Computed example of a mutant assay.
Amino acid sequence: MIKQCFLPLENQDIRLLILGSLPGDKSLQEQQYYAHPQNRFWKLMKLIFNVAEIHSYTDKLDLLLEHHIGLWDVCAQAQRKGSMDLDIIDEEPNDLDVFLADHPHIHTIIFNGQKAQKVFDKYFKKNPNYRYFTLPSTSPANAQYSLEKLLQEWRTVLKKD
């Protein structure tokens, strides 16, 4: 089954870009980034930016933009049965070179998990003008990382900005 990514969360003020691999089935069904209730992405953002409550998906996206963070996926589309990153095949990348050229304030790229970084490395050369960080995936499939351990690693990078 061919699955496609969402449009990027972006504006002209973003300085940091978080790249996932490709939305999972629950995210595609809900048409929202990181919609699976066990995905820890939004919980991490709340903790890192000290926000007590986020009431809507729009509030979640606004939180990122307030902190100059964009969000997208490395894969524009791919074949994948289910939601596991390991099952992604025949991927086609997003045009990240054009995206980065159109967003000159970006200086840091974060990969949400190793699959995003590996697909990026397959199609793109790392540019010395950017800092790159591969962080542990927030996916529930990454059960070896507790929320506390994820928080420690993600906070270190996001708070550098």
Rank of each mutant, 00 (worst) to 15 (best):
Glu91Asn: 06
Pro93Gln: 01
Lys43Trp: 06
Gln144Ala: 12
His55Ile: 09
Asn94Trp: 06
Glu91Leu: 06
Lys46Gln: 15
Trp42Arg: 08
Lys125Met: 13
Asp95Val: 07
Ile88His: 07
Trp72Thr: 13
Glu30Tyr: 12
Ala101Cys: 09
Met45Arg: 01
Gly82Leu: 00
Ala141His: 13
Asp59Ser: 14
Arg155Lys: 15
Pro140Arg: 04
Glu91Pro: 03
Lys159Cys: 10
Ile88Thr: 03
Gln29Cys: 09
Ala101Asn: 11
Leu47Ile: 10
Gly70Val: 07
Gly20Val: 03
Asp97Phe: 13
Glu148Gln: 10
Pro23Glu: 01
Asp62Ile: 10
Asn50Ile: 11
Pro37Cys: 08
His36Ser: 13
Ile88Lys: 00
Gln114Lys: 12
Glu148Asn: 13
Phe49Tyr: 13
Leu22Ile: 04
Thr138Met: 04
Pro37Ile: 05
Arg155Glu: 14
Leu86Trp: 08
Glu92Ala: 10
Ile89Asp: 10
Ser139Tyr: 04
Gln32Leu: 10
Leu158Gly: 10
Asn142Ser: 06
Thr108Phe: 02
Phe133Cys: 11
Ser56Ala: 08
Pro93Cys: 04
Asn94Phe: 08
Asp95Trp: 07
Lys149Arg: 14
Leu61Ser: 14
Glu30Phe: 10
His68Cys: 13
Asp87Ser: 14
Cys75Trp: 05
Tyr33Arg: 05
Pro23Asn: 03
Lys60Asp: 09
Glu30His: 12
Asp87Tyr: 10
Asp102Arg: 12
Leu150Met: 01
Asp121Met: 06
Pro37Asp: 02
Phe124Asp: 00
Glu153Phe: 08
Phe111Gln: 00
Ile48Lys: 03
Pro128Gln: 07
Val74Cys: 01
Leu158Asp: 06
Asp102Met: 12
Trp154Gln: 01
Arg80Trp: 07
Leu64His: 02
Leu96Gly: 03
Ala141Thr: 11
Gln29Pro: 09
Lys43Phe: 07
Ile88Glu: 05
Asp85Ala: 15
Val119Asn: 09
Leu61Glu: 15
Asn129Pro: 10
Leu150His: 03
Asp95Leu: 03
Asn94Met: 07
Arg40Trp: 05
Leu28Met: 11
Ile69Lys: 04
Leu28Ala: 12
Ser27Cys: 03
Glu66Ile: 11
Ser56Ile: 07
Asp97Thr: 14
Gly20Cys: 05
Ile54Arg: 11
Val51Phe: 05
Val157Thr: 02
Gln144Trp: 08
Ser139Cys: 05
Cys75His: 06
Asp97Ser: 15
Gln31His: 12
His107Asn: 15
Lys122Arg: 15
Asp87Pro: 05
Trp154Asp: 04
Thr108Trp: 02
Asp25Met: 13
Arg131Gln: 15
Val74Lys: 02
Ser56Lys: 08
His55Asn: 15
Tyr132Ile: 06
Phe99Pro: 00
Gln38Asp: 15
Ser137Arg: 09
Pro23Gln: 08
Leu19Gln: 04
Glu148His: 11
Tyr33His: 04
Leu86Asn: 08
Tyr145Ser: 11
Ala35Thr: 03
Leu158Arg: 07
Gly113Cys: 06
Thr138Ala: 01
Gln31Met: 09
Pro128Phe: 08
Gly70Met: 00
Leu64Asp: 00
Lys60Gly: 09
Tyr123Ile: 03
Lys118Pro: 05
Lys43Gln: 14
Val98Ile: 14
Phe99Ser: 07
Phe120Pro: 02
Leu86Pro: 05
His103Val: 01
Leu151Phe: 07
Leu19Phe: 02
Phe133Asp: 13
Lys60Thr: 08
Met45Gly: 05
Met84Pro: 06
Lys159His: 10
Asn142His: 10
Thr134Asn: 03
Glu148Ser: 09
